[in-house]
Design a protein around this nucleic acid. Structure first.
Lengths: 173, 173
DNA sequence: CAATAATTTCTCTGATTTCAGAAATATGAA
DNA sequence: TTCATATTTCTGAAATCAGAGAAATTATTG
């Protein structure tokens, strides 16, 4: 699919934002392109539209699959793989947050736990207390993420649109 | 303040995590160090404890101040500036999330809006619809963040600890 | 208003990351 | 199995980023 200047501008912006989110510019651009596509497209198509190396597109697609932001599709009579982006922005946001959370807290609970044990053994109660607090935070974050995975995206949209009101409700509980 | 091996290990881990959060390793290490300090310390102290260049510590402290994770303190009869970290982990998490959200969506709404206008002018309704959805997501994120700023940290702790139960409640609204 | 101590900003180097192109591998049809 | 083509992995160049040290600036005290 050929793209207009407006689409190009959006994709460039999206790539720029990606870098601030710890996602490579070209990866975010591939995602932006797929988000604007009406139907599934193949890797070669992405290359020519964005003027990126084939290898780069391949790596980007793999990354996006890990985020579960794109899905593969196969067309009969065509051996190439076609890709589509998750089109619902709420689902998109949710998956990005989930994968980021996973990457960013991966192993952190265990690591802090290890330090905590050592601090206790040494009888350093101040340090132990600080680490314990950190530990509680990290494991709560994991628990919330786990719980969140069990609810539909529509719920998050609802919650987000309620915004401040929701927090007001919680305050009254 | 001199630090034990356990503390050193924690700080190193914290620094490592920082890099995955888009925060420089040394910045996160300075933060980790301050988090483990019983009282306010000065920059020189941080340098010697972590074996970092004075300039690096200065830059890190400035960064941490922007995150509002550390505060300055002055001692009478001492012209040097002393620093303390916010010790409550929930407050800490909140401020990190707030600053990250700010950095990561900075200008995004305006940029997408610009593209959206162009797409509409060109009569490209498909592209316009996609951009509109993205726009809604981004501005909702900003609204939620704004609303959140008006509530006390204790509320977030409460909400987080409720975890899945809270989502169940929202589902029933 | 010095003199001196504290802090910040600037510049440069080394490490890391991104990404294009080449080489290798995998897949499917005949 | 062989051929053609799609895809992935490897490699090196270019860009970016972190962090040390020097230079400049700011603040404090006599």
């Amino acid at each position: 699919m050929q793209i207009s200047d407006t689409q190009k501008r959006f994709i460039r912006r999206w790539g720029e934002m990606g870098t601030r989110w710890g996602i490579a510019r070209s990866t975010a651009m591939v995602h932006g392109y797929l988000y604007l596509c009406r139907e599934a497209v193949n890797a070669e198509d992405i290359c020519s539209a964005l003027e990126l190396a084939r290898s780069n597109v391949s790596t980007s697609l793999k990354e996006l699959e890990q985020f579960r932001l794109v899905e593969r599709e196969s067309k009969s009579g065509d051996r190439r793989t076609f890709y589509v982006a998750v089109s619902d922005v709420w689902e998109m946001a949710r998956r990005i947050l989930e994968e980021r959370r996973r990457r960013e807290t991966e192993g952190a609970v265990a690591a802090v736990n290890e330090c905590l044990r050592a601090a206790k053994e040494e009888g350093d109660s101040f340090t132990a207390a600080r680490m314990e607090a950190m530990q509680e935070l990290l494991s709560t974050a994991e628990n919330v993420a786990d719980a969140a995975r069990r609810y539909p995206t529509s719920l998050f949209r609802k919650a987000a649109l309620m915004g401040g009101k929701l927090l007001g409700l919680i305050a009254k509980l």
